[in-house]
Simulated scan of single mutants.
Amino acid sequence: MAKKQKKGWTAAGAARAAREHRTTTAEFLRRAPIARIDRAQRLVDAFELHRSHVGGHEEAAALMLITGLGYPETWQPEHWYEIGETVIDDEAVDLAKADLYILSPQMVDVITAAASSLTEDDLTLLRADDLPCRTGVLVLPRPLLVKTPNGNISDDRAFLWRGPIPMSIPDPATGAFVSKPAVKISTYYDRNGPVEADSFREFAAQARAEGTPLPPLMLDGIQCYPFEFVPSSAQLRNLDAWADNARQSGTAQRRWEEEHGYQENVVLGDYVSGDEIDDPDGRFMLRFLYAFWRLCDQSIAQISEAEVNHSARVTAARVQAPPEVRVVELRSARSASSDADDGESLDRWNHRWVVRMHKVRQWYPSEQRHKVIYRGPYVKGPADKPLIGGEIVRSVTR
């Protein structure tokens, strides 16, 4: 029997899938008790990591956890389930009301490349007006394999943001908490992604038995980042120390899992160790979204609206979500004739190639601020010649 060919990406198909993924996931968060129990357990794990980082100081660890989720330092919940329930309830509301964006596969490669170029100084330029909307969710055409600070592999499939929100952070000079405008970001991993774990299979079986099977998108980490935040040298050292502590904790956890017969970090498919995106400080989600937001503001990205038919409206109405989907694609490359402005004849080339994308910090006098600007990528060479791989942007087939 002939092997069935996998269908290629289309904007209409991706928009339809993204609507269904968002709706099914929001429904699960709203009504599944197991979602709250799972979040409470994850919060306990995060608290233990914070507590080991601050030398066993429970109050400091709790403050790190609560304020890092975007809640005020004055909140004093009675138990972990209360925190988990609040987090899940807020997440369901935000996910349902968010503006929905999808990316073409080519655009994913461009954004990944752009994100890898962002430095600590670049992140200090992030402002609320960089966000294309107050609340948005970005669904990817495929999961991105990301190596987290604890050494595990995550298959990230969607990112939800909302901002500006008030975030309580300690003042380096006084230690007192002050409120700063921030962006809150949630990462969702792919239920059907390539990362396989014994504990996840047990969790999925339990969800089915309870009548609430797992949705396509599974809530993972939640973090907040202040706008225009310039960390002190002490804060940067603290971030490095936290990441180092996470790596040690992850190593110890994997050793325990192996000794007890659990396989928690198996990646299926064509994965080869080293193919994943390294995220040593736990801020890949911020870098990826910041690169996405900046590219949306430039001519590199082309944004269009997917068709909204009756089926799309019915799907969105299940959770009172907007049915519109914004499709973000790589804008058509410059024509070969437009490359002649560098005085070089293209006749002698027998292929096309992707010109390296590079980043600059552009000064805007009217706004009295710098912005991150990306120049390129574009395809150079005769239009009728085959395309070969570029230096940074992979799989750009234009």
Rank of each mutant, 00 (worst) to 15 (best):
Gly151Arg: 08
Gly151Val: 05
Asn152Met: 07
Ser154Ala: 15
Ser154Gln: 14
Arg157Asn: 12
Ala158Ile: 05
Ala158Tyr: 03
Trp161Gln: 00
Trp161His: 04
Arg162Thr: 00
Pro166Arg: 01
Met167Gln: 10
Met167Asp: 00
Pro170Val: 01
Asp171Lys: 09
Ala173Val: 11
Thr174Phe: 09
Thr174Tyr: 07
Gly175Pro: 12
Gly175Ser: 06
Phe177Ala: 06
Phe177Gln: 04
Val178Trp: 12
Lys180Ile: 04
Ala182Arg: 00
Ala182Tyr: 00
Val183Glu: 00
Val183Met: 01
Tyr188Val: 03
Asn192Met: 07
Asn192Ser: 10
Gly193Glu: 09
Gly193Met: 10
Gly193Val: 03
Pro194Lys: 11
Pro194Met: 11
Val195Ile: 09
Glu196Tyr: 15
Ala197Ser: 14
Asp198Val: 10
Asp198Phe: 07
Asp198Ile: 07
Asp198Arg: 13
Arg201Thr: 08
Glu202Lys: 13
Gln206His: 12
Pro213Phe: 09
Pro215Glu: 14
Met218Tyr: 12
Met218Asp: 04
Asp220Trp: 13
Gly221Leu: 13
Gly221Cys: 05
Phe227His: 02
Glu228Met: 09
Glu228Gln: 13
Phe229Ser: 08
Phe229Asp: 14
Phe229Trp: 15
Val230Ser: 15
Pro231Asn: 07
Ala234Asp: 06
Leu236Cys: 05
Asn238Pro: 00
Asn238Ser: 09
Asp240Phe: 06
Ala243Asp: 03
Asp244Met: 06
Asp244Gln: 07
Ala246Thr: 01
Arg247Ala: 10
